[in-house]
């Protein structure tokens, strides 16, 4: 029983990462209808920003954390402005946007390797060591608790923002029907910038924390990014609750699979689930289908 609770806790921590990153894919997909492959690199970027702040500039961790969220959000906006917007303005096909986003993610990865280092860095100690006991049932390292808490906090904040702020409603309107939204006087480019900012902030919070949990390396955003995308599709792309659901589902299945079956196929679980979902419920578990208008 304790073993099981322990696995669930581990699953929730890693699921929080997937959920935080997945929601960014969903938000961007909602407004631009394309898979932003560079989303994972925002996560990598954030991990390095916080690492530098703590290591080089000796900034206290909470401030470093905050700064990396904001900077990564801006970085995300910059990617959109410099790489995607010119293509959008030209009405380039989706394929070109996809290729560009892959290029951006490679660029971030390779720039870190070339101009800094390909090494894996262990994050300086910023949290108390040891583990925290939870009601005597299980134990968890503080980072796992922080991850889950941050995830819950940011998800609630996003919920409030999307439903109760003017910009949040604009994002929803844009996702629903771009032309109609433009006719209603919504500033499309501004709304898209906000969307990228929020997506960036959500992903970068996960980036900093997995940097602490594991280590900081140029490839951090790669596999986490791809699995989170799988989470977004499993939950139903375009649905915010769906991406949370997908994230936690994959996090739990992965830890359970590794714990009870075999850890050899850990990285494949997300994708097997993805293929199954696409076979039997292509719109995702909580999503509505997207149909092209004829």
């Amino acid at each position: 029983m304790n073993e099981f609770v322990q696995q669930v806790l581990n699953g929730l921590a890693i699921g929080s990462v997937y959920a935080l990153v997945a929601v960014g894919y969903t938000l961007v997909f909602g407004v631009l209808r394309f898979i932003n492959f560079a989303h994972g690199s925002v996560l990598t970027f954030a991990a390095y920003v916080s690492l530098f702040s703590v290591l080089v500039f000796k900034v206290p961790f909470p401030f470093a954390f905050g700064a990396s969220l904001v900077l990564s959000g801006l970085f995300s906006i910059m990617i959109e402005r410099q790489a995607y917007r010119p293509l959008r303005a030209r009405g380039a096909p989706n394929l070109n946007l996809l290729i560009t986003s892959i290029g951006v993610s490679l660029l971030v990865e390779n720039a870190i390797i070339v101009f800094y280092s390909a090494d894996f860095f262990v994050f300086p100690r910023v949290l108390p060591s040891g583990t925290v006991s939870l009601l005597g049932l299980a134990t968890a390292p503080p980072i796992d608790l922080l991850l889950t808490a941050v995830a819950v906090f940011l998800m609630s904040a996003l919920y409030m923002f999307v439903n109760f702020s003017k910009m949040g409603v604009a994002i929803q309107a844009l996702a629903h029907d771009r032309d109609a939204a433009a006719l209603m006087g919504i500033n499309i480019n501004l709304t898209i910038a906000y969307t990228f900012f929020i997506a960036g902030v959500m992903a970068s919070s996960a980036g900093v924390l997995i940097g602490i949990k594991f280590n900081v390396n140029p490839y951090l955003g790669g596999l986490f990014g791809v699995k989170s995308f799988a989470a977004a599709v499993v939950g139903g792309i375009g649905s915010i609750p769906g991406s949370y659901f997908g994230g936690y589902l994959i996090g739990l299945l992965e830890t359970m699979g590794a714990g009870y079956v075999s850890s050899n196929y850990k990285d494949a679980i997300a994708f097997v689930l993805l293929v199954l979902i696409l076979l039997f419920k292509p719109s995702g578990l909580l999503g509505r289908g997207i149909q092209e208008k004829v």
Binding site: A83, G103, V104, E109
Partner: peptide, 12 residues
């Protein structure tokens, strides 16, 4: 870096 830039620059 050149290689990664290639994707973005070619598409643009």
């Amino acid at each position: 870096v050149f290689y990664a830039l290639l994707f973005v620059v070619m598409m643009l």
